[in-house]
């Protein structure tokens, strides 16, 4: 076991973790504003992957040519628009009625079933097969230190782009008026409405952002894993586990939770067995639920009376 191999493993773990983090980040956004989340987040990611498959297929001539960066950004944009648009439907159909009645079961089941519908529609519109999606960076590993360390450019892209997407949203949340309103709705809905903030609109907006981010995640992950109609379900569940580990209430927590899960999977797969790769993450999940149910970064609200 060489140091470079460990480094490579950790790098892959971080890349995988960033995908979980990206989905979980979306959970965090809507959970903070509405105490609900979209359990079909993984299927939004799948739709994003197929959008990029279609755009690249339509706009890049030749089966092997790499898509240019402008095509890549077009894929991200297309995925984000589709995600945000469908989020409005999801919010109206699955979330809004549940918020009215205050029933937790209904939004959970409704978002899960919309995910199943999305999967079936994708099988119909695209394919039931796994299809490759090309990355603008190609798939040939980058070699460092005379080939001792090789980095997968697709993983590199996931880490950088996912990081940038989350960073951009954090800046937006802190600096813009709408972003501040999102945070205000998250901490106190009544007080936010007294500021003149239209709370239901902000909640819808949070779902749009959350689903757009997941769909962009699909564009990032597709070159690595292929696009398939069933790719979303497991990713969505694992991202949920990641957000519970880190703390659903904390934006930083869900990222850390994702990274822990991603790295533990890679390390277990290498040192124990690929069959057990999901075990440590879920054991950790159970321990966290027993010991600190708010998650690692879960915080009791700062409140003085």
């Amino acid at each position: 076991m060489q140091f470079t191999e460990l480094l490579q493993l950790l790098f892959s773990g971080v890349a995988l973790g960033m995908i979980y983090a990206l989905i979980a980040f979306g959970y965090n956004i809507t959970f903070s504003t509405s105490r609900t989340l979209n359990f079909s987040q993984g299927d939004f990611l799948m739709l994003g992957a197929f959008v990029s498959y279609s755009i690249i297929g339509a706009m890049v001539a030749g089966k092997r040519a790499l898509p240019g960066w402008h095509i890549f950004f077009l894929c991200l944009l297309g995925a984000a628009i589709l995600g945000a648009g469908l989020a409005i439907v999801l919010q109206q159909v699955a979330i809004k009625p549940a918020l009215k009645t205050g029933s937790d079961v209904s939004w959970i089941l409704a978002t899960i079933s919309l995910g199943i519908i999305a999967k079936n529609v994708a099988e119909r519109v695209w394919t039931t097969d796994d299809v490759p999606v090309r990355s603008p960076l190609g798939a040939n590993a980058w070699q460092f230190f005379d080939g001792k360390l090789s980095i997968d450019p697709r993983e590199f892209m996931i880490i950088v782009a996912a990081g940038l997407i989350m960073f951009a949203f954090e800046i937006f949340r802190r600096k813009s008026m709408l972003g501040k309103a999102v945070t205000a709705v998250a901490s106190d809905k009544d007080a936010a409405s007294l500021m003149g903030i239209n709370v239901p609109v902000v909640i819808t907006f949070s779902f749009m952002v959350s689903c757009a981010i997941a769909a962009m995640g699909g564009v990032l992950v597709a070159p690595l894993t292929f696009a398939s109609a069933s790719m979303g379900a497991l990713l969505g569940v694992k991202a949920y586990a990641a957000s519970v580990i880190g703390g659903l209430q904390s934006g930083l927590g869900v990222v850390v939770g994702g990274l822990i899960l991603g790295m533990s999977e890679q390390l277990t797969a290498r040192f124990i067995s690929t069959g057990y790769k999901d075990t440590p993450g879920f054991i950790l999940l159970i321990i966290i639920l027993l010991v600190k149910p708010d998650g690692l970064f879960g915080k009791a609200a700062v409140k003085k009376v």
Partner: peptide, 9 residues
Amino acid sequence: EGRRVFPEQ
């Protein structure tokens, strides 16, 4: 009542 400032901001 109770001020209700946004504590994290």
